[in-house]
Structures are given as C-alpha cells and as structure tokens.
Nucleic acid binder design. Structure first.
Lengths: 231, 231
DNA sequence: GATCGTCTTTGCGTTTGCGCAAGTTAAATG
DNA sequence: CATTTAACTTGCGCAAACGCAAAGACGATC
C-alpha cells in the first residue's frame, strides 16, 4: 500500500471520495520515482498514464518545430499531470522533467477510465482541476499578449514563489534550480533580457539572485511591478 | 423538445451516450437565443450555466485590468463553452459575445453536476473536450512566446478559416465580422501591425481583405508563412 | 445621395527587446 | 587546489513592432 488514505484525501483529485474508493485507487496505483533531471514522459510519447505528483517538482516543457523551448507549467505536489491520457490515442504534448528528485502516483489510462465510470466524483474532480488549469493558462496567455517583459517576469517570479517558495532569513527563496534561460522560457523572452532585468532589480534591492537561484527580498516591490503601479 | 437525439449525438459532449440519456439531457436544456452583439454571459458573472452552441458564432474575450482586450477563443457550433461552471463558486473568466445571431443549449451547474454523477460517460466527454482545449491554448501560448507577429497572424487566419471558412469563388471567406482590432487581440499585437501585414499579403495576392472581412485566396501561401518556409 | 461614424491605411519617430560577442563568476571535477 | 565547464552579465548595434496622427474608404442612416 502506498501512503495512507487520510493523507491522500487532501489530494484535489480525491476530494469527496470515500476512503473505500481512495483505497481502491491506491491499490492499483504505481509509485514512480524519477531522479533530478529524469523524465516521467517525453513530448510525443503515447499518453498512457496519468500522474499525481507526491514529492519533488516537475517541469512541463515543449520544444517547437524550430527547436526553441517553452516552459508551459511547473507542477508542485499534489497536482495531477498528464491528464491528456484520458483522451484515447493522445500523445503527450509536453515533456515532464523532474526538476528535483520526484515521486508520483501513476495510473494507466485504462485503469483511470474504469474508475471514472464507477466514481463520478472522480471525473468531476478531474474536470475541476482541468478547468482551473485552463484558467491559469488563459491568464498567462493574456499576460503574454498584453504586458511587457518586466511585468511578465515579476508575475512569473511571484507565481513560482507561491508554488515553491521557502522562507529564509534573506527573504523568500524560490526552491528549485531556475536558470535565466528557464525564466525566459516561462515568460516568452530571452535569457539576455531576463538577466538585465534581474540585475536591475538586484540593484534596487528587490531580489537577490545567483546561479540558478532567486531570492525575493521585497515581494511587495515585485507586486507593484506586476500590477504596473508607478513609483 | 429541442432538436432530436439523432442530430445531437453528433455533439462531442454526447458521444457514446444512449438516446435515453440524450433525451433526458435535452428535456431539461433551455434553448438560449442571443442576437448579434449580445452576450451569453459577462466576465465576472457567477458561472452558473454551461452552453453548447448550436448555431451562430461566439467570441470569448477578456478585458485586462488596464482595459486592453484579449480574444481568447472563437466558438463554432457544436462546441461546449462556459465549462468553468462545473467548478463551484466560479466566476466566468471571459465574456461570451455572439458574433452573429446565435443559439445555444443551456444547462445549470446543478443540473449538469447531477447528470454527470449519473452518466460517467458525460463527465468523460467533458474531460476530453477540456483536454483538447488545453492543448489548443498551449499551442497558441507557444506560438505567442516564440513566433513573430507575421507567423502568428498567418496561423490565426488559417485556424479561423478551418473553423468558420466558407468557400466562395474568390477563395475561402472567413465568415464572421472580423476587424483588424479583433485579429490584433487574437494574436497579441496591435491593429496597426495587423493592417500593415494584411496590406502586404494583399499586394502579394495571398488574401483579399475589406472592412471586417478577409478572404484567403492562396491558403498554401499562408501555410508557408505560418510554418516559416522561406521563398 | 449626402452625411456621419467607423474601420482602415500608412508615414514617421520611438521604444522595446533581440542577440552576438566578449568577458566574468561560480560551481563541479579531478 | 587547479582546471574545466556552465551559467551569468553587459556593451553595442539592430530589427521588430508600437503607437500617434492624419488621411482615406466603406457602410449605414436619414
């Protein structure tokens, strides 16, 4: 048995399910462990499994036909990912790379479809997660379409801080290896521009940044930038 | 009774449902008719209804805090929209404006949740539609993040043509009132830039454009631009 | 068919952001 | 501890796209 039901009921996918149901789900779940830098699946693979991240952190990235990278999403515990697997014949549109040693629960499409037919609540939960995911992407799309790089970058850092932030005495550390390139891929810009903006913010004392590391010292300052409030 | 089951089984939301189930769904569906320019719902309204467009065309648009418009999606028949309503307490993140006289089937959140609990297939269909929607937005996000305006615009026109294109002797007419401003909101640029690019394409004979109207004469030329194939 | 309101075009100056290139820093490796 | 490797910074020139302003074109309306 993997974990115990009492903790897993915290998982959004399992809300409002009875412990009997949760136990049944867990009974057939496989636990997958992927080392830092490893992949749960690759873009283009047949989508045959769904995952719920238990620990670690996962990047969902895409490569364009021209070879440019785009970072679509960062998955923190306890989020569902790989939900395209619910569509028959689908291919994963993104690659899922562990940004730290990560563990996830894993079900096959067949298993999950079977459960969904017996447990309508499960399907509804999945729907709600998808709906909130859609909202999130739409927000990012709007950001990208209407805002300048500086605002987008501030927004991205704040989002990351809320997902993976860890309080240290200097401020809030974004707890994952995060290169300038990564931030560029998230915000639709280049590593040069990211570097320039971060340097600027560092001069103003808003952040502290190092190699693949960002600490937010005055979140409020970033909020002001993200919301475009002047001096 | 609204429509008959045999036609409505074509609706993706109803795939694999028995005609008994479809009849039950239709029995409680309301038919909503909205004139050109009217709204099914407004951004910020409590999301209490789901819709399936039967005829006409609907734009899902968003206004930013600063008042800029973003056109998130164009809904053609027979697509589900307003699916956020499946989340309790949600607000619509977009406004749904009829771009032509439009008719839609409408269910309340409560009704639909009830059905979803009794008809797992219904929930699974909704999930699949959401999943494919997610993929579509991700594609557009990637486009916006990595491609230049000209490519994005070509992509948008081709997408619109496939959704609402009507063959006329001149070429393929995009069958909705579509201003330069609309195209700009779709592709994350300005109406000036759209106008300049369309003029350029018109000179090359790729399109024919007029006031709120675009006809694609050589789709292949646009495809070449969208895929960034040189001369 | 004249008038009005929009939508559209285009010239022009400006801004933003790109991206090379060269140099710097910091972690990892032996 | 020396060396290597990879990430980062920054100057600089350039291209893309913005956005104002003013003129032009198209439909609708009376």
């Amino acid at each position: 048995m993997i974990g115990d039901a009492s903790r897993l009921e915290q998982i959004p996918l399992f809300y409002d399910l009875g412990s009997v149901e949760v136990d049944r789900l867990l009974a057939v779940a496989r636990a997958i462990k992927v080392p830092d830098g490893g992949f749960f699946f690759l873009q283009g693979d047949p989508a045959e499994h769904l995952f719920v991240l238990q620990s670690g952190l996962v990047r969902l990235g895409q490569v364009t036909a021209e070879g440019q990278q785009v970072l679509q999403r960062v998955i923190a515990p306890v989020t569902l990912f790989g939900a395209v697997a619910l569509m028959p014949e689908a291919l994963y549109p993104v690659s899922a790379e562990a940004a730290a040693e990560s563990q996830a629960l894993c079900w096959s499409t067949r298993q999950m479809m079977g459960f969904a037919k017996e447990m309508p609540t499960l399907a509804l939960n999945a729907l709600r997660m998808m709906a909130s995911h859609v909202q999130e992407i739409q927000d990012r799309f709007r950001e990208l379409a209407t805002q300048r790089v500086e605002r987008r970058l501030a927004g991205a850092l704040l989002r990351l801080a809320s997902q993976t932030g860890r309080k240290i005495d200097e401020g809030v550390l974004i707890d994952l290896t995060l290169s300038r390139q990564d931030l560029a891929e998230m915000t639709g810009t280049t590593l040069y521009t990211v570097s320039r903006i971060l340097s600027q913010w560092e001069d103003k004392g808003l952040i502290r940044s190092g190699r693949e590391r960002v600490v937010i010292r005055y979140p409020h300052g970033l909020v002001r930038i993200a919301e475009d409030i002047g001096e």
